[in-house]
């Protein structure tokens, strides 16, 4: 008799994450890869890699959950039983690891969020608006400009004794600020540390504005791997900030837990990575709305389509 296992997949703008858990929420396999603007191939690659880490003699996958910005597309590909937004997924994952958590800070590739929790219930949240200022994309941009590997960013920041003040509201303004400070003769580590501080200030002033940040505070998302930003948060909030080893997998972990509620008795096959998926996006001309209709094909057969506002889009 095989044990039940549950798969969670989180497809973000920058990275795609997969986690397989068992009945007691232990992670039995996980993977983290870059999305590279192609969610279909990222999901296929992710599934292939998870298969190699997964013991199919011991376990069988009975439910699948997808989250993240491409959750719908991936959900169709994988035949997901649960498709939910990443805010709820992150909250569920964090609560299951830190039952006493009060504040979750999440900064990803293109968005940042704050989630407030009380007695294991999400009570409030806020998210950045459409602009990606103060997120991972901003830091990656500035690292490139300074010719620094993004992985070294945090450790360089920690060397600074005199961080510069920078505007972080907008990547365009930050550029002129940054060039100006560099030409004034500031050291690279001072600028890098200034960037970390400006990310934190931007977050606290724009995303978390008006919200009470109570500890324990848990910091997640790709940017939480940057110790410079973690340090800047601790200095600013004057409290300890928890960063989990699996902080980057939280969305996938959370959706795997949530999918347990929607168990179906069919054995998931990893063969998905061999199937040929294709999406076609076109502007429908059925009516004046000109909807952007998305169609997904599996091995040349139409699986599903969405984006249409009326029946004309189905033709």
């Amino acid at each position: 008799m095989k044990n039940n296992a549950y798969l969670g997949v989180d497809i973000g703008s920058i990275s795609t994450k997969g986690v397989i858990i068992d009945d007691s929420n232990n992670i039995i396999a996980c993977e983290y890869i870059k999305t590279q603007g192609n969610p279909i191939s990222a999901v296929k690659q992710l599934i292939k890699s998870l298969e190699s880490k997964f013991d199919s003699n011991l376990y069988k996958i009975v439910s699948i959950g997808t989250t993240g910005s491409a959750r719908k597309l991936a959900g169709k590909m994988l035949g997901a039983t649960t498709i939910k937004n990443e805010i709820t997924a992150h909250a569920i994952a964090t609560i299951s690891i830190h039952p006493d958590v009060r504040t979750i800070i999440e900064i990803g590739g293109q968005d940042s969020k704050i989630i407030l929790v009380d007695k294991k219930i999400v009570t409030d949240y806020a998210m950045n608006t459409l602009c990606a200022a103060g997120t991972g994309a901003f830091l990656t941009n500035q690292a490139k400009r300074l010719d620094i590997d993004i992985n070294d960013f945090g450790s360089i920041a920690l060397m600074s004794k005199n961080p510069v003040k920078l505007a972080a509201r907008c990547s365009v303004f930050a550029e002129s600020d940054l060039v100006h400070k560099a030409q004034l003769g500031y050291k690279k580590e001072d600028i890098v540390s200034g960037l970390c501080k400006s990310i934190v200030n931007n977050y606290l002033n724009n995303v978390a504005k008006g919200k009470k940040i109570l500890s324990p505070v848990v910091f997640q998302g790709g940017v939480s791997k940057n110790i410079g930003v973690v340090k800047a948060f601790e200095d600013e909030l004057k409290t300890n900030v928890i960063v989990d080893d699996i902080g980057h997998l939280m969305g996938a972990y959370g959706i795997a837990i949530m999918s347990k509620k929607s168990v179906k008795d069919n054995d998931f096959s990893f063969r998905i990575s061999d199937a040929n998926f294709e999406t076609k996006v076109y502007d429908c001309s059925g009516c004046a709305n000109n909807c952007e209709v998305i169609r997904i094909y599996k091995d040349m057969k139409l699986m599903d389509s969405w984006g249409n506002k009326c029946e004309n889009g189905l033709k």
Partner: peptide, 25 residues
């Protein structure tokens, strides 16, 4: 003048989750 509604759906869905105090875990 946005052309995609995914961001909107994420915000609405999570807000409704909070109102319903769903305990998914």
């Amino acid at each position: 003048e946005l052309s995609t509604i995914e961001g909107l759906q994420t915000r609405l869905e999570s807000f409704i989750d909070i109102l319903r105090k769903d305990r998914f875990y």
